[in-house]
Amino acid sequence: MNESVLVTAEELRQSLAGDRPPLVLDCRVFRGGGEPCDRRYLPGSLSLDLERDMSATPGQGGRHPLPSRENFTATLQARGVTPECSVVVYDDNGGQLAAARAWWMIACWAGHPDVRVLDGGVAAWEAAEGELVATAGEIEGWSHWSPSFNDDALVAVDELDEKGGQLIDARALARFRGIEEPLDPVAGHIPGAISRPCVENLEPSGRFKSARQLADELPRSEVLTAYCGSGVTACHDILAYAVAGLPLPRLYAGSWSDWIRDPSRPIATGE
Results as ranks from 00 to 15, higher is better:
M1R: 10
M1G: 14
S4F: 11
E10W: 02
E10K: 10
E10H: 08
E11P: 06
S15M: 11
L16K: 03
G18S: 15
D19A: 13
P22C: 06
P22N: 05
L25E: 01
R28W: 10
R28C: 07
G32L: 11
E35K: 11
E35P: 02
E35F: 07
Y41M: 07
S45W: 03
S45K: 01
L46C: 08
S47F: 07
S47A: 13
S55K: 04
A56I: 00
T57S: 12
R63T: 07
R69M: 13
N71P: 02
A74D: 09
Q77M: 04
R79T: 10
G80N: 07
G80C: 05
V81M: 12
T82D: 07
P83Y: 10
C85E: 12
S86N: 03
S86F: 06
S86K: 01
V89S: 11
Y90L: 04
D91E: 06
D92R: 05
Q96F: 07
L97F: 15
A100N: 09
W103C: 13
W103D: 09
M105A: 13
M105K: 08
I106F: 12
I106L: 14
H112W: 07
R116Q: 07
R116E: 06
L118V: 00
G120S: 02
G120T: 00
G121A: 04
A124C: 11
A127M: 10
A127R: 15
E129Y: 08
G137A: 03
G141R: 13
W142N: 11
H144E: 13
P147E: 10
F149I: 14
D151I: 11
V155F: 05
A156N: 09
D161R: 09
E162F: 01
G164Q: 01
Q166I: 03
Q166M: 09
L167K: 02
I168K: 08
D169Y: 00
A170G: 11
A174S: 14
R175G: 06
F176G: 02
R177C: 14
I179L: 15
E181P: 10
P182C: 12
D184H: 11
D184T: 10
P185K: 12
P191C: 04
A193K: 03
A193W: 06
C198A: 12
C198E: 02
C198Y: 13
C198V: 14
E200W: 14
E200V: 11
E203W: 05
R207K: 15
F208C: 06
D216R: 15
D216H: 14
P219A: 02
V223W: 10
V223D: 12
V232R: 08
V232E: 03
T233E: 06
T233Q: 05
T233N: 05
A234I: 14
A234K: 14
D237Y: 12
I238Y: 05
L239S: 07
Y241Q: 13
V243H: 09
V243S: 05
G245D: 01
P247I: 04
P249V: 00
P249T: 00
R250Y: 04
Y252F: 15
S255P: 08
S257W: 02
D258N: 07
W259K: 00
W259M: 00
W259P: 01
W259A: 00
I260L: 03
I260M: 00
D262G: 03
P263C: 05
